[in-house]
Amino acid sequence: MIRVDAMGDACPIPVVKAKKAIKELGGSGVVEVLVDNSIAVENLTKLAKSLNCTAAAEKKGEAEYCVKITVGEAAAQPEVGGEACYVPAGKKRIVVAMASGKMGEGNDELGAVLAKGFLFALTQQEQLPEAVLFYNGGATLTTEGSPALEDIRTLEAQGVEILTCGTCLNYYGLSDKLAVGGVTNMYVIVEKLTGADLVIRP
C-alpha cells in the first residue's frame, strides 16, 4: 500500500501524485490519497475509473478525505502528463490578466500598492485562478525587484500558471530578469483568454 499526502494541493497535483504512486506500485495493490476537497475526490475517482481500478472515498474531517484506489490485475498503467482539471459545473475557469503594474487609474504610487494588494488577496481565495498573465507594464510584476514576487510565487506553488509576455520583457529590457513563472507569447495569451470562463483584469 502506498499512501500519498495531497492535502493542500491544487488540481491537478493530487491526480499527478496518484498516478505516480500507481506507477510505483507496478502491479496490483492499494494507493491511498489524502486530499482536502471534494473536487479532488471526484478527480481521483475519475482517474481510478479510467484505469479500470476501483475507488472508495471516505470523509475523515471537515476538509480531509481519503480516497482508496484499489489497483487490480486488469488495471491500465497511468500515462503521465496531460492531466486535465475536471472542473465541476459551477466552478469557473478563471484567468487573471495583469495588464499593468498598477491597479486602476489615478495615482501611480497607490496603483502599485493596490496591484500588490490584489495579488496578495488572490492568494487568500478559496478558488484560485487557472493562470495569471502578465503583459505590458504587468511584466514588471514578475521580474526582479517586484514587490509582488512573494505572492506570485505562492500562487505558482499552488498550481496557478504564471505567464509573462516575452515581447514585453524584451521591450522593457527585462528578458534576463524574470523571477517567477514562464515566458509566453501572444498565441498562448489569446488561447488562455479565449479558453477562460472568466477573465479578471484588475
Binding site: V113, G117, F118, F120, A121, Q124, P147
Partner: peptide
C-alpha cells in the same frame, strides 16, 4: 523591518 502591506483581512 520585515513585512509588507496587504489589504486588511
Amino acid at each position: 523591518l520585515p513585512g509588507r502591506l496587504i489589504p486588511v483581512p
